[in-house]
Design a protein around this nucleic acid. Structure first.
Lengths: 215, 215
DNA sequence: CGGGCGGTTGAGGTCAATCAATCAGAGTGG
DNA sequence: CCACTCTGATTGATTGACCTCAACCGCCCG
């Protein structure tokens, strides 16, 4: 769980555009190591980011160390766009990750950047609303089922899913403990809804039944 | 908890602008009774709304009836703006409520409506992120403390807070049961952090201590 | 071979849910 | 004005899902 906040990002290469998706900005690609901080809560929000490869978690901490992951970002996702001057959450890489980084001001040069930012914010809001439903009202098994299905969709994986995050990250996203995540996964495996092939690989044997669990 | 979905909204008066705040649209004011549906999940998302007086809850239901309130809207708040064609949640009034209603298309006529929609979505997203932290990682007492403080701020109440919603609504927002909400409020009262004057009125005796509970 | 790390499994504890009365206030009708 | 009812809130007793604490496992790497 240690984050190498001070380790420098690994080399900035030539400028590259935010080419796919609908937010276009000229930026610089940057490679990060595992568990590196991209930005921290309270820092100035001067840059925006787009994931090229790898993955990022956005999280908040309570004073006693309790941790809640608000969202994950995968290739193609834009993150770090905020209306205020200050970051309201910390962003960290999950594994080796490449990002495009652009000054926040850059994006305003886009003629209808407003509409694009809006759609981007709406996509995050939609996920956040699903997340609220999951955290507020679903059981551990239902949380895991919803999580695996969402992940399969966002990663465009078929039924074989390579988990980009640790059990701890899953727990902190789902509002559970690492032990409950582990137990619940083996329970789902026992019910033949999933198969676990090494701890970072899951096959969805019955996506229909998983979806039913989420109603 | 019954919603009078079929009861007609009470009279539409002369056109009125979305005058304050930053989203401006010509619309029509409309009065709703208590617990009336403004729109339902799955319906077409053709209109947007602004609260004039009263309050609105936005909620989702699981198949077995579990209910999660995603957000409340108070005077000045705009809600019902969605990128898709279909509503992803139900909106219902809490008590007697007046809304301005406008066709969704109307808003696009605003030159930089994109930027305004973006700020609006960001405000909702910010609240949703706080909500995720609360649901994922806080105890019942911490949830209530955070809720009361947020409410006081959004309603611009001082220390004396008129709750616009029932215990059931609070429970469904906070991911608790009505019994736990009730018990926890009396516990906070016992600790002299709040005083309860009739079940719809709360005084925050020690907002500092409540804030500390939330870290 | 030994140590470390992430994950799994087990035993027991805890906080909130559930089930069940009881209570308080608002509205109704005698 | 006082029963009576209905609804929402409170309180109590018990249960249960998930957490905590602890041991263990498997894998990687030195």
């Amino acid at each position: 769980m240690q984050v190498q906040a001070l380790a420098p990002a690994r080399a900035a290469t030539a400028p590259a555009p935010f080419d796919d998706g609908d937010i276009h900005v000229i930026g610089v690609t940057r490679a990060y190591g595992r568990d590196q901080a991209v930005f921290g809560e309270g820092e100035p929000a001067d840059y925006i980011y787009k994931v090229v490869s790898g993955a990022v978690r956005s999280l908040r901490l309570l004073a006693d160390g309790r941790r809640q992951i608000a969202d994950f970002y995968f290739p193609g996702d834009v993150f770090g766009v905020e209306p205020g001057a200050e970051r309201r959450a910390t962003a960290e890489t999950l594994g080796e990750t490449v990002l495009i980084v652009a000054r926040r001001a850059t994006i305003a040069s886009d003629p209808d950047c407003g509409a694009r930012l809006w759609r981007n914010a709406q996509a995050e809001l939609r996920r956040s609303r699903d997340h609220v439903l999951t955290l507020g009202r679903r059981s551990a098994a239902e949380r895991l089922a919803a999580f695996l299905l969402e992940l399969a969709e966002r990663l465009d994986a078929g039924r074989t899913l390579a988990l980009p995050m640790s059990r701890q990250d899953m727990a902190d996203y789902l509002g559970l403990t690492i032990e409950t995540v582990s137990r619940t996964l083996t329970q789902l495996q026992g019910e033949r809804l999933i198969a676990i092939d090494g701890c970072r690989q899951v096959r969805l044997l019955r996506p229909d039944a998983l979806a039913e669990l989420c109603e």
